[in-house]
Simulated assay, not measured.
Amino acid sequence: MKHSIEGMTNLPQSFSIGAGGGLGGFGGVASPSLVGAVASANNDRNMQSAEQLVLDLTNPELRENALLELSKKRELFQDLAPLLWNSCATIAALLQEIISIYPVLSPPTLTPALSNRVCNALALLQCVASHPDTRMLFLKAHIPLYLYPFLNTTSKSRPFEYLRLTSLGVIGALVKVDDTEVISFLLSTEIIPLCLRTMEMGSELLKTVATFIVQKILLDDVGLDYICTTAERFYAVSRVLENMVGTLAEQPSSRLLKHIIRCYLRLSDNPRACDALRDCLPDILGDTAFQSCLRDDPMTRRWLQQLLHSVNTNRVPLQAGGFDHIL
């Protein structure tokens, strides 16, 4: 489709809509009503195609192709998420795809073909998680919990990396919208330990997505309070962030560093956490090690300056309830 559109933009003026020759040689530009009618017809065709593919999901013989086509074209189908959610047995079919590969997680025998198929199902669940009309229904059904076994895997093979990345994409879609109810649900599960594990052991892209999820949780007041309620939780997060900074000193990644600094800055909003950061904030953040990495990112440079200023000036006495006092 992209190639055909690009080809049309290179047509001679006499063949272009709105040129002197007009549409079909009748002169003038296409009327708004005609353009609207064409767009409406396209939408109708897309919707009919989507409805048929969604029906195919419940047929085991047609499901694999339906998963592939829907995942590839999900941006073209308006209101695909409500259609998926409200169609009979569709979500059950997607969950069946997920559950079916649990046996190959341990020992790790997941093949590329199986990984691609289940990731297509996860892409459709991400669509449901992103839509405002289905997001909370998705949570109330506790569907994210079905993804956690994937995040618990440790195999470095490409099928498993792809599986973990797509699973994190579903969680990332949930937290992109600033919603305390979403954060509260995730905190009632084991999402923080799973993300911390990925931040320690995953590839750069996996680390980036997992750190983004932790960042979005911290940016919510409920999430910040949860992390800073106990010394154990705070030091679990800060220790992983510190290790990641050490790794980035050898293998810089401006995108990942941005999320790490934002996590630290948000932690510094809590008085006890800010006090504790005086002792556990990596010294390397205060020198010139990352200057070149942040050269083209003025916002992250400001975040880092604000972080260093907060940690160096806002010290809370231990008797006021610092983490050292708790320990």
Rank of each mutant, 00 (worst) to 15 (best):
S167V: 02
T189E: 12
T198R: 10
T134Y: 06
P149W: 02
V209M: 05
N270S: 09
L248A: 08
S157Q: 11
I191Y: 00
L139Y: 12
G18I: 03
V170Y: 01
R197N: 14
E232M: 02
S253P: 08
S203T: 15
D178P: 00
F185K: 04
Y264D: 01
E190K: 09
L257A: 05
L281A: 06
A81N: 14
G223Y: 04
D79G: 00
A92R: 12
V245P: 06
S203W: 08
L114V: 07
A19G: 14
V170E: 00
Q48S: 05
T153K: 01
Q251N: 14
L327Q: 14
I171F: 06
D221R: 10
E51T: 11
L84D: 09
N59V: 13
V104A: 02
P107C: 03
L281W: 04
Q319E: 14
L57D: 04
Y102D: 04
S71Q: 06
T154W: 08
G25P: 03
A121S: 13
A249L: 11
I5A: 14
L194N: 06
G202R: 09
Q52C: 05
L194D: 02
Q251K: 14
P317V: 05
D220E: 14
K207H: 04
E204P: 07
D297S: 08
S49A: 10
I91V: 15
H259A: 05
L327G: 14
D296H: 02
S71W: 08
Q78N: 09
N59S: 13
R266H: 08
N10A: 10
K140N: 15
P103H: 11
L95P: 00
E204N: 12
T189S: 13
S238H: 01
C274I: 02
L110I: 05
P317R: 07
G24F: 13
V104Q: 02
C263D: 10
L94K: 01
K258F: 03
Q126L: 13
T247V: 07
R239V: 03
L84S: 09
G20T: 12
V182E: 01
R301F: 04
F234C: 12
N42Q: 13
I284V: 10
L224I: 01
N243A: 08
N314Q: 12
V182H: 00
F212S: 02
R117D: 06
V38A: 14
A123K: 09
T211Y: 00
I98R: 01
A320I: 00
S188V: 03
A289I: 12
V38P: 08
R295K: 11
N314M: 12
A236K: 10
T300R: 02
Y235M: 04
L62E: 15
L294A: 04
P32N: 09
S87C: 09
L95R: 03
N65K: 13
K207P: 02
R255M: 07
V104T: 05
M199V: 11
G18S: 03
E6F: 12
A320P: 01
R74I: 12
T134F: 05
E51K: 09
L137K: 07
G223Q: 02
S130M: 12
H3E: 15
D79I: 00
M199S: 11
P108T: 10
F323S: 06
R158D: 14
R272T: 03
K176D: 14
L241G: 02
T134I: 03
K140D: 15
L307H: 09
A121H: 06
N152Y: 05
Y264T: 00
S14Y: 10
T211V: 05
E232C: 01
P252A: 03
M244Y: 01
G27E: 02
